[in-house]
Design a protein around this nucleic acid. Structure first.
Lengths: 164, 164
DNA sequence: CTTGGAAAGTCAACAAGGCTGACGTAAATT
DNA sequence: AATTTACGTCAGCCTTGTTGACTTTCCAAG
């Protein structure tokens, strides 16, 4: 089960091996979201709010339509989330200067505090997993994930990666 | 950006690097579920049905309570899904012989056909990602995912892995 | 043999977070 | 001036998760 590279190029592509990867994704994603979910449970927020907060933090001043395309939901769905975040003073929405139809989104101080709390928890788990698996594994991890994305999403991912 | 092991043990653990991993998980999981979602859309089924089908296929004869603990949902939630699958003749539920309170679950022929269709699609993407990233990356991928799981889920994952 | 508790199923009610469709407004573009 | 774009909003629906209460079935311990 060494999964050695090279001559064994076929072995690791058996249905069973691929199925194990599928299950790994399923179980790992649960762990991935568990900590932020726990924090948000009790506030009036959920995973959708977390995602909005994450990407506004990541790209301050991003527009609603850009966020829509990153998150892959409808504007009605995003708007419900965004409205509550704005009402609660976590997100600030500013009319665009160049194009006044656009709204540019920013985290307020309060929003940054929650973002920090959520991402601290999520990063702690990710960091622990990275540490346990080692640097080589981390590189492979990201390579496979990137190859798994739809092209549109990979575009977003790469743009964020470079920007970050 | 060689992410070499050893001396650079700190470099790849910067917050930014970890954030990229978080985003990779987010975008990749979307791709991961996209193909089965497309297939199920139009049938009366959703992702929850897919999960049930997957794990019944994986462990034929598993009990409801085992499935509950794997899926991490309430029995009411699972029951709704299971009921429709049984009514539609995709899943067969059998009273246990040793313990007649338990129900053992199996895919019918029809259920196996849908399972095959769903997993063919999902495996095709996973296989392509594996091929693109290479065997070493695949090993790392699974190592990181496994380290990311909650212990309880890792137990399930490992048991399935050995059983498979 | 009775009884306590576990396993399973079911009903009702609710919430989060997706979706579609329709409509309105302001601003940019043609 | 007309059209398109970006955004917001209302209304209604679906899936999939939740709690709580209750029943039936059955094993196992007293």
């Amino acid at each position: 089960m060494a999964d050695a590279p090279g001559g064994e190029g076929l072995l690791f592509l058996t249905d069973e091996q691929v199925r194990k990867g599928i299950e790994a994704m399923f179980f790992a994603y649960r762990g991935f979201t568990a900590d932020p979910d726990r924090i948000l449970d009790g506030m009036n927020y959920g995973r959708a709010h977390h995602r909005a907060i994450h990407f506004v933090h990541r790209s301050p001043g991003t527009t609603v339509s850009n966020l829509l395309s990153i998150l892959g939901v409808t504007k009605q769905s995003l708007n419900r989330v965004l409205r509550s975040l704005i009402e609660d003073g976590l997100v600030r929405s500013e009319k665009g200067k160049a194009d006044a139809r656009e709204r540019h989104l920013y985290l307020t101080e309060k929003g940054q505090m929650l973002e920090r709390e959520l991402s601290d928890a999520q990063r702690a788990r990710m960091r622990a997993a990275y540490r346990a698996a080692g640097p080589v594994a981390v590189t492979g991890f990201r390579q496979v994930l990137e190859a798994m994305m739809d092209p549109d999403m990979r575009r977003h991912y790469t743009r964020l990666k470079e920007g970050g």
